[in-house]
Design a protein around this nucleic acid. Structure first.
Length: 250
DNA sequence: AAGGGAGTCAACCGCTCGTCC
DNA sequence: TGGACGAGCGGTTGACTCCCT
């Protein structure tokens, strides 16, 4: 029996937690997640904080469905790299500004499941079923099994969240409607509100050795050039042909 | 309108890698 | 050199939403 650390929260993040995390990442930067988790007063693990930041709260992230260009790029890169060595989702993600490895991983799974089902169908019925995706036509079928088993879990779900998730609806054209993250960022950018935040951890910091920058301005807020999606030279060489094609197509 | 299956996505887990002392 | 610790990654799970019957 594994003893959970007392009071460590799991499950979906609340808006309050998000705001809290964004604030403290602004203070301390995207490092020392365990430390950050501790001083922030969030009853979360550092890992959990990092994941939430990288996959959801990072300001450079795009929301909404992948564009056909992005889909094409994912498929192409996976075909190119996925078969040569262990597929690095993060590597592929770096080619897609604003997309996370988690997002791409999810997309790939969905895509492959669909493909496997189509295959199954076409194998069981002799009539050729037209592929629903023109993207897959240029990609060789990877030999992978995509069956998903569901197990009875412990159902560790935390109540009272998900207003963020439900805000991610889209209109008919795949363009995200307004989502709460915008609101969060607006809120964070408002010094009055920041002053109003009453985090336990923040109080500790004020009382202790930490000093709080008045407006939240830190190098990490500048995402114009040095971001998660920065491409190093070596990788650029590998990527350049694909990138050029993609740019030309669009 | 209701129910069930499929699709989507946030989040957790375990492992590996990198850095520092 | 090796151990400790932090960071990052891929795999997996499960809840929510959508869509079809």
């Amino acid at each position: 029996m594994v003893m959970e650390k007392e009071d460590t929260r799991k499950g979906p993040w609340t808006e309050q937690e998000d705001i809290q995390l964004v604030w403290f990442v602004g203070l301390f930067g995207e490092r020392r997640w365990d430390f950050l988790a501790k001083v922030s007063g969030l009853n979360r693990t550092g890992k959990s904080c990092r994941l939430r930041w990288v996959n959801y709260l990072h300001p450079g992230l795009k929301r909404g469905r992948m564009t056909p260009q992005e889909e094409h790029l994912v498929l192409e890169l996976h075909a190119k790299w996925g078969n040569r060595f262990v597929c690095r989702w993060s590597r592929i993600a770096r080619r897609l500004p604003g997309r996370t490895d988690n997002e791409i991983k999810n997309y790939w799974r969905t895509h492959m499941r669909k493909k496997a089902q189509e295959r199954k169908r076409s194998a069981s019925s002799p009539s050729p079923s037209s592929s629903s995706s023109n993207l897959s036509s240029s990609i060789s079928d990877p030999p992978l099994e995509v069956g998903v088993e569901k197990h009875e879990g412990d159902g560790a779900r935390v109540e009272g969240t998900s207003s963020l998730m439900t805000g991610l609806e889209e209109d008919g054209e795949g363009v995200p409607k307004s989502y709460p993250m915008e609101q969060i960022w607006n809120d964070i950018a408002t010094p009055e509100l920041v002053g109003d935040l009453s985090f336990e951890g923040y109080k500790d910091i004020e009382a202790g050795n930490f000093s709080c920058p008045a407006p939240v301005t830190s190098p990490m807020w500048d995402y114009s050039s040095d971001s998660l999606w920065k491409i190093d030279d070596e990788e650029y060489k590998m990527f350049a042909p694909i990138a050029d094609d993609t740019i030309r197509e669009s």
